[in-house]
């Protein structure tokens, strides 16, 4: 486990040294959400209705954007080889990497979401639902996305391909999360949706690191 811990620490340090890594997806998140009022309708009542969905779609795209680089550098500079050589569990390593990814993408997105709520006239009752759905849902995005990132890490045009592979898998998260925010906005209960997100998170925590670990081995170039 010592290499897993060291890798988590090193990746956080790397993110601190290269702020673009976590700041660029955040700015992208902000800009995408700002496009909707301009493209569709700036009327507050209309925006209030779609705010939850728009914020979630933007969060999903921002996550995808930052996923592409999750394993790429590690494959190219030989870190992957060292993980395999270390004899430590790839399950733990992929879990650690997904955790780091969430810390630098999902967590800041969650923290910044109230700002977007204001811009899109999200009903006041829905803020907590937005926050909680992002807090529970974005780790699922990181975990599932890490599988795609591991599969495409050594491909040159991996970014677009990654989106193709992963977006259909994101559909359930999107459906339940956006619905939680919408229902909170119209004053209805949304704990069922959050519970579903929680169940998905549990499942993703248990299973995706296996798939990501297996996929990582494919990137050992010959």
């Amino acid at each position: 486990m010592s290499l897993v811990r060291a890798t988590v620490r090193r990746d956080l340090l790397l993110a601190a040294r290269n702020p673009g890594e976590w700041a660029n997806p955040l700015m992208f998140f902000l800009m995408v959400a700002a496009l909707f009022p301009m493209a569709v309708d700036p009327n507050p009542e209309f925006l209030a209705k779609i705010a939850g969905g728009v914020i979630w779609v933007a969060a999903l795209l921002a996550t995808l954007l930052s996923l592409d680089s999750l394993y790429r550098a590690d494959v190219e500079d030989g870190s992957l080889e060292q993980w395999l050589a270390s004899g430590e569990s790839l399950y733990a390593m992929s879990l650690g990497k997904a955790l780091v990814h969430w810390c630098i993408s999902g967590l800041p997105l969650t923290l910044m979401s109230p700002l977007l709520g204001v811009m899109l006239h999200l009903p006041e009752e829905a803020y907590f639902a937005l926050f909680i759905s992002l807090a529970v849902g974005t780790p699922v995005l990181s975990l599932l996305g890490a599988v795609g990132a591991a599969l495409t890490a050594s491909l040159r045009s991996g970014g677009l391909l990654l989106a193709l592979l992963i977006l259909p898998l994101y559909v359930p998260v999107l459906i339940f999360a956006a619905s939680a925010v919408y229902h909170a906005g119209i004053g209805m209960a949304y704990n069922g949706q959050v519970a579903m997100l929680g169940a998905m998170l549990a499942l993703a925590l248990a299973l995706t690191p296996f798939a990501a670990g297996a996929a990582l081995k494919l990137n050992l170039s010959r």
Binding site: L151, P168, L169, V171, P172, M200, L203, A211, A215, L218
Partner: peptide
């Protein structure tokens, strides 16, 4: 191998997608 891994991840997801 990559195709197989993705197909398996998809297989687990299909019921979840259908349900949602």
């Amino acid at each position: 191998k990559a195709g197989a891994i993705l197909a398996l991840v998809g297989l687990v997801n299909i019921p979840i997608i259908k349900y949602s």
